[in-house]
Amino acid sequence: MTTYRFTCIVCPLGCAIEVEMENGKVKEVKGHTCPRGREWAIQEVTNPRRVVMSVVPVEGGALPTVSVKTAEPVPKGKIPELMEFLAKLKLKAPVKVGETVAEWEGVRIVATRGA
């Protein structure tokens, strides 16, 4: 059995949550004070995901880069792969805020700063 400990980030309360796992399955969740905290903690243990932000070079803009984010959270373990992909991108102005500038494994990469 493995115990994972987190400070919950769902709200500012910051509950100390413990998730007990056995044979890859959630056995018990302790310390949460709401169902959202429980759900989040289980997700953190079984399939943690993150929205990823970075910058991508752009030609012909006022600034040399545009900032981007993934349109949805991506599996934490795949973030290095995504960063490799983003490192190879090169954009040309004009780029609008909210524009999809690329797609990676079905996830849209969206500009958050225009050029």
Binding site: V51, M53, V55, L63, K69, V97, G98, T112, R113
Partner: peptide, 25 residues
């Protein structure tokens, strides 16, 4: 704001979560 490319901005003011550059824009 334009360099704060992480999310967490605007939840009160715009009632949605934005990145810094989006809030500034």
């Amino acid at each position: 704001l334009p360099q704060c490319i992480h999310p967490g901005f605007g939840l009160h003011y715009y009632k949605e979560e934005l990145t810094g550059p989006e809030f500034a824009a």
